[in-house]
Design a protein around this nucleic acid. Sequence first.
DNA 1: ATTTATTTCGGTAACGTTTCCGAAAACACA
DNA 2: TGTGTTTTCGGAAACGTTACCGAAATAAAT
Lengths: 340, 340
Amino acid sequence: MVTIKDIAKQLGISVSTVSRALNDHSDIKKETKLKVLETVKELNYRPNSVARSLIHQRTYTVGLMIPDITDPFFSTISVGAQELLSEQGYQVIIGNTLRDSAKEKRFIESALERKMDGLIITPDHVDEELVEMLSNINIPVVFLRRRPSKLLKVPFVDVDHYKGACEAVEHLISLGHKGIGYIGIPIESPIAIDRFQGYKDTLKKHDIPYVSDFIQLSGGRTIQSGRIAMDQLISHIPEMTAIFAYNDLLAIGALESLAQHNIGVPDTISIMGFDDLEISNLYWIQLSTMSQPRNQMGRHAAETLLKMINHANTDDEIPDSILLDSVLINRNTCKKLTYQ
Amino acid sequence: MVTIKDIAKQLGISVSTVSRALNDHSDIKKETKLKVLETVKELNYRPNSVARSLIHQRTYTVGLMIPDITDPFFSTISVGAQELLSEQGYQVIIGNTLRDSAKEKRFIESALERKMDGLIITPDHVDEELVEMLSNINIPVVFLRRRPSKLLKVPFVDVDHYKGACEAVEHLISLGHKGIGYIGIPIESPIAIDRFQGYKDTLKKHDIPYVSDFIQLSGGRTIQSGRIAMDQLISHIPEMTAIFAYNDLLAIGALESLAQHNIGVPDTISIMGFDDLEISNLYWIQLSTMSQPRNQMGRHAAETLLKMINHANTDDEIPDSILLDSVLINRNTCKKLTYQ
DNA sequence: ATTTATTTCGGTAACGTTTCCGAAAACACA
DNA sequence: TGTGTTTTCGGAAACGTTACCGAAATAAAT
């Protein structure tokens, strides 16, 4: 490997002079600087950032831990983060954890050994072990799409799921719907709680009674689960004229079930999703839904992380957490209710 | 930061002893080794892999350059590569180039400065500048889904597009189709050439005349382009009874156009895609297509790269390139032709 | 007890940089 | 020419590790 020494030797000068030339220091003659730059080209020299990191105690590397890079949701977030970070000279190392908490811990451990400058993480469960681990860490961390435990003084960025759910249901109500069902997942994660609560609160706000028969909370968050849930709910048509689904996959599953039963959407029932996946815009689907600003989430997470990295010593305050708004995308699965 | 020195000081021993204890060297007393391990826990010490890299001239980092991590195709490939590499203690740095050749070059440059141990790349265009750049590189490189120029002694891994296209068309022919159209992209990339050639050769093999009116090569590789292309082709029904599309997106666009025109699939026309995207399995689509072993591609690329990294000095031969087979996925868009 | 063999350890250089400090070189002014 | 100031440079330590070599400590053999 060609190093700074080789350049120094070839020119008969010292390594420190070469270093100064390469780093645009002031105390160097223009002439020698040019000679150095020339030799750099000639020898095809490239600075060794490993050595640089060792000196500067900065690797210009940050870790981004996500559950599944294959999920366009997370890959778009990661693009947002990468865009901003690479502008600032940072490399991003993506940890694909597949929601496996052992993998999560291994990734964080490895990030620490590699002396990354910061960490953006989306842990699947914020369990005790993780909290314990994170509280002993000496690099900045920001939570993405997850809420840190109260013990952790860590900022997060997420979308306002509660507000989004309220808007979605509000939209349905504004179209005249009163019999509004909900297809969701078991009330465990904070996100599930927020969206469900938004649904319930908005009904209450409009004095619409909560009908537990219109609710299906079993199953996972897949198309398959949505189809099964809708199968259960189908007997409540036509009293039930609309459905708000926890996410687009469930909504699409519902659409599938309704298509199989030959029930028209939005003619006999309206469907509202949440997430705005790319497939939701497909010709056959055209799902009305709440779009989450994924790219922005990644950018904001990166921004707050950079703030923390740069103000590590000067300022002890951690940056504010951020809740972004989702936006309503109106396609073809919701219809104004007309009373005949 | 707590270093090896802190441990040495606390125990009153030398750093070299601590180092030996941590690296399972033979010439160390069991007793002291245990004491060291204990102190490591106590002080929450973590080895600094930056310093280690500097000594060993190995970073255990490889770069993976892809056009778009948001595309499930590439994200699945990257998962395959990551799985294998992380088993071997490597970290993967993903470079998302968005098919921008400036970004590509910057990524490679950065990989070199960071002294990555190897590179798996999917360059958008293999232009002269890139070839020039790559031929001056002193770390192993493997091409993924792209063919290196002949000047480059670099292995590649890809699927056999020609063979896959032959199989797809063969399938259509075996169902009795003779009027088989092709929706594709301009014949520029090697992949486009291979698939189109497979189409033409298979027709010829079965003495089916090549009808240029049945071919649409304009546009990009999006659903939109597929729809437009099909719009142009629709007048050739019913002589044309089947279509082989360059990829699933185009095929889905064709499906969209046919649905708009109320033309039954597969009743009046059969459609065959290539790629097997996740959306191709959707209830409304159920596209018959050729599935590419994406995860395997990533794994194979990683494997050959590791071979090159580990045999860097011992053996100068580069590993063989690999062509993987795609497999036919038969869903509901192809039908046996019945003559009435 | 002395010698020899074995185990265990410490000192030091090295990896490729940057940075500090002091010294040499160049310039300005009297 | 001498003094003072500024510019430019070189030497050396440091970042946190590992690896080599020789020395000390222990065990085994005579």
